Simulated scan of single mutants.
Amino acid sequence: MSIRIHDLQPAPGAKKAKTRVGRGEGSKGKTAGRGTKGTKARKTVPAAFEGGQMPLQLRVPKLKGFKPHNKLVYQVVNLDRLVELFPDGGQVGPEQLIEVGVLNKKELIKVLGSGELEGVKFDLKAHAFSASATTKVAAAGGSTTVVDKKTGEALAE
């Protein structure tokens, strides 16, 4: 005798009738399996709900990273750009770079050592210098002066 499709049935105890909750005292009436009192007994609560505390997804910053409010942002000027703008060398400071249009009034300058000076002597004033820029300017016979970020007065050579 062979098994036919109408003979197939699930194993005993495999299928269980769905419990009808909250349909009177004959079934799971009254609290319907939710226990007594509290928000979860009265309505469905989202899994991320933290009881009125500021939720995690709102506590965490929206964008990645940290931006310090007092970060110093420098306008970068390379030595080869200075040679283009001032081929004869001489004294170059924030005032001269503002006149040429390299930077705006309130911006800070940092001189970087990209490029060669090729015999051009500079007496530079800036808010910051890279180590390579300082050595290249000194090798060409020039000088570097660090200027105060707030007052604009010379600090050190």
Rank of each mutant, 00 (worst) to 15 (best):
42 R>P: 00
97 L>A: 03
47 A>W: 15
58 L>G: 00
67 K>D: 06
72 L>S: 01
52 G>R: 04
116 E>R: 13
73 V>S: 09
121 K>S: 08
26 G>I: 14
110 K>Q: 14
27 S>P: 00
134 T>H: 04
124 L>R: 11
42 R>W: 14
121 K>L: 05
63 L>Y: 13
65 G>N: 03
133 A>Y: 00
144 T>H: 01
114 S>C: 03
76 V>D: 04
48 A>V: 11
41 A>H: 15
22 G>A: 11
53 Q>S: 08
118 E>T: 05
41 A>F: 05
116 E>A: 09
61 P>H: 01
142 G>T: 13
51 G>S: 08
94 P>F: 05
80 D>W: 15
43 K>P: 02
127 H>Y: 03
142 G>C: 10
49 F>H: 15
129 F>A: 06
80 D>L: 12
58 L>I: 01
115 G>R: 11
120 V>F: 04
89 G>P: 14
38 G>F: 09
59 R>W: 01
45 V>F: 09
141 G>M: 09
63 L>V: 07
49 F>Q: 06
120 V>C: 07
53 Q>P: 03
35 G>L: 05
82 L>V: 15
135 T>F: 02
60 V>S: 05
55 P>E: 06
88 D>H: 10
119 G>T: 10
108 L>P: 00
35 G>T: 12
105 K>H: 02
58 L>Y: 09
85 L>I: 14
33 G>H: 12
30 K>L: 08
28 K>I: 14
71 K>H: 10
70 N>T: 14
100 V>C: 06
115 G>I: 12
114 S>D: 13
53 Q>G: 06
45 V>P: 15
71 K>G: 05
57 Q>C: 05
62 K>F: 07
26 G>L: 15
146 V>I: 13
95 E>M: 04
143 S>E: 14
111 V>R: 09
104 N>C: 01
97 L>K: 09
109 I>L: 14
118 E>F: 15
31 T>W: 13
42 R>D: 06
61 P>G: 02
42 R>I: 07
109 I>W: 00
93 G>T: 06
56 L>Y: 15
113 G>I: 10
96 Q>I: 01
49 F>C: 05
53 Q>D: 07
74 Y>Q: 03
135 T>D: 03
112 L>N: 11
83 V>Y: 12
37 K>N: 12
99 E>P: 02
56 L>I: 11
23 R>N: 04
43 K>A: 09
61 P>M: 00
73 V>M: 06
98 I>A: 01
145 T>H: 11
39 T>I: 11
25 E>R: 15
71 K>M: 09
36 T>A: 07
108 L>H: 03
112 L>M: 08
72 L>W: 02
105 K>R: 05
51 G>R: 02
88 D>R: 12
126 A>V: 09
115 G>K: 05
111 V>P: 04
45 V>Q: 12
54 M>L: 09
141 G>R: 05
131 A>L: 11
82 L>P: 06
47 A>M: 11
135 T>C: 02
90 G>A: 06
81 R>C: 10
112 L>P: 00
74 Y>V: 01
108 L>V: 00
21 V>K: 13
78 N>A: 10
96 Q>P: 00
136 K>C: 02
93 G>V: 12
91 Q>L: 08
